[in-house]
Design a protein around this nucleic acid. Structure first.
Length: 546
RNA sequence: GGGCGCGUAGCUCAGUUGGCAGAGCAACAGACUUUUAAUCUGUGGGUCGAAGGUUCGAUUCCUUCCGCGCUCACCA
């Protein structure tokens, strides 16, 4: 796409005409007395009192009728119609409204409120001010913006055109506020822990890697909050939680974005049973708060969120849904059962992976209403405490709704010697080439050695929850700016490369942008963050300008 | 990464069994002082995602590439 000047000469020439008439097309402020919706709400009183209101918004439609015209202004609260008449506002201003103001522009108007012949509450404009001139045409009003790619790439247009999109993100905001209120009520402290970490951990995933210039050291974007939040438990912050972005350098699909929002919380002195109770209360509280009901529909499927939710151990679930009892089944027989079901699970990876595979095969998709699956095999739960009744299992649960996982929780492992052994096993896996294995974290072990109380912990994917609660099929629909591949701009192929383009300006070199960055990363893998960007310089330029 | 599908005007979409590129809305010019998908008359607007190939001729057929969606594998 070209610049708006090349692309829309008609709009640009109107901008020039506005300037030629001595009007500032981009003034600094406008005093609003009534947001659009409040005019509609108080229409009767406002009509009766003949009170003059002022309202501002973006023009979303415009209909001229010779010497008068209607338009709709859209603000954050809603849409209000305005009526402009030549005999009220004067020929000079009317000419500007008629010829130079168009759909997409921001307008501020003052005037009395009346009701039209067809019954719509409308502002009779007696004063008008252009607040911002738009140089690009918005999508047409009737069909709107449907192209999925454009909606994600140009969310600002999507939000203007599609009111239900705005509603999704308002709901997401209410969801997060509701979670925070609930956690407040439970005596939690909300904390912020590092996103840039010298070591990454707390989950098994491939990280993004970057580099700190001044310290000349590699840093990783966090893949989980877990190890830092547990350090806070050691420090005596007995109920902590964090809502923040984690970053995982893995595939993108309907339910995965490279950065996503995670709620993690940890509570001292409790086990996973307590966490189950709390998760049940958290979800039902949030659903009541945001949707006003525990009966929900997701993608056409009815879900009953009413507690209590069933709690079934993983082995019982496999027995119940698959009619297979794997409890004391010899490993060879287990492998045969997996083979019969066409499950490609390597027996060398242990019983845990095979049992998990059978669970996914027989059970997971059939868990429509909220269900806790408990007591996972120890091999696939490296951070969870062993179950006292069965050392092959752990005190771990996951919550499933509509066949998807919504929470993952344990009675946390707090034995420093056991934790060290598990790290050593991970290091061994790493040595064998497992790119997702856990690194040895000596500082975390030191914290464990000072002593961590018995602790229950939990992680909940907030984007998944937002998808469920807004009935969205794709994670991109609940992310304001989902990750997309680089867009190419005609006539400016490096448009998005600005910050790291080799021909940087002198200013860009101040932070040492060009050479020596991320020496171990081939360009274009997407695995590495660039540093010393021009954008950072832009910020410092702005700061010095002030 | 594999498989399937899609990419035509600012937007929503037709279309070409290979032969001058279409509509509605938006825009522009004109009429119209309570319309609301305003109406009426007229006009302009396209590298048919990009690059190659086949052909007298390619938006159409073939190849490669780019982007998006669905799906499988991995993950939350």
């Amino acid at each position: 796409m070209n610049s708006p000047i090349e692309f829309n000469r008609q709009r640009y020439s109107k901008l020039e005409e506005i300037r030629a008439r001595g009007i500032d097309p981009y003034p600094v402020r406008y005093d609003v007395s009534h947001p659009a919706q409040s005019i509609l709400d108080q229409a009767e009183d406002l009509v009766e009192s003949a009170e003059r209101v002022s309202v501002a918004g973006r023009i979303t439609s415009k209909r001229g009728h010779g010497k008068s015209g209607f338009a709709h202004l859209l603000d954050r609260t809603g849409r209000i119609q305005i009526y402009v008449r030549l005999d009220r506002i004067g020929s000079d201003v009317y000419e500007i409204f008629d010829e130079l103001i168009e759909v997409g522009d921001y307008l501020g108007v003052k005037g009395a409120v009346f009701t039209t012949r067809t019954g719509e509450t409308t502002v009779m404009v007696d004063e008008m001010e252009l607040l911002s001139k738009s140089l690009r045409a918005l999508p047409e009003k009737w069909h709107g913006l449907r192209d999925i790619e454009t909606r994600y790439r140009q969310r600002y247009v999507d939000l203007v055109i599609n009111p239900d999109v705005k509603e999704v993100f308002l709901k997401r905001s209410r969801l997060i506020r509701s979670v925070q209120r609930f956690m407040d009520g439970e005596g939690f402290v909300e904390v912020e822990t590092p996103i840039l970490q010298p070591l990454y951990g707390g989950a098994l995933a491939r990280p993004f890697k970057t580099h700190h210039q001044a310290l000349d050291m590699p840093l990783f974007m966090r893949i989980a909050d877990e190890l830092y939040l547990k350090r806070l438990i050691v420090g005596g912050m007995e109920r902590v939680y964090e809502i923040g972005h984690d970053f995982r350098n893995e595939g993108i699909d309907r339910t995965h974005n490279p950065e996503f929002t995670m709620l993690e919380f940890y509570i001292a002195y409790v086990d996973y049973r307590f966490i189950m109770d709390l998760v049940e209360r958290l979800f039902t509280s949030v659903f009541q708060d945001v949707n006003g009901t525990l009966n929900h529909t997701y993608q056409g499927r009815s879900i009953d969120m009413t507690p209590p939710w069933p709690r079934i151990s993983m082995l019982d679930a496999i027995r119940e849904y698959g009619d297979v009892d794997v409890t004391r089944m010899p490993t060879a027989e287990l492998a045969a059962v997996c083979g019969e079901r066409g499950l490609d699970v390597d027996p060398e990876l242990g019983r845990g992976k095979m049992i998990d595979g059978l669970f996914e095969y027989f059970v997971q998709d059939r868990l429509l209403n909220p269900t806790f699956i408990t007591d996972y095999p120890v091999e696939i739960s490296p951070l969870a405490k062993r179950h006292p009744d069965n050392p092959e299992l752990t005190e771990r649960f996951e919550l499933f709704i509509c066949g998807s996982e919504f929470a993952n929780a344990f009675s946390e492992l707090n034995d420093p010697m056991d934790q060290r052994r598990r790290f050593e096993e991970q290091v061994e896996m790493q040595r064998k080439g497992d790119g997702e294995a856990h690194a040895m974290d000596e500082d975390f072990l030191r914290a464990m050695e000072y002593g961590m109380p018995p602790t229950g912990g939990c992680g909940i994917g907030i984007d998944r929850l937002a998808m469920l609660i807004t009935d969205s099929a794709n994670i991109k629909d609940v992310l304001l700016f989902p990750h997309m591949r680089k867009e190419s701009f005609d006539g400016d192929p490096g448009g998005l490369d600005g910050p790291d383009s080799p021909g940087g300006t002198g200013a860009e070199m101040e932070n040492g942008s060009g050479e020596a960055d991320s020496p171990d990363s081939p360009d274009g893998t997407g695995a590495e963050l660039e540093n010393g960007s021009g954008e950072a310089d832009g910020l410092s330029d702005r700061a010095s300008g002030i």
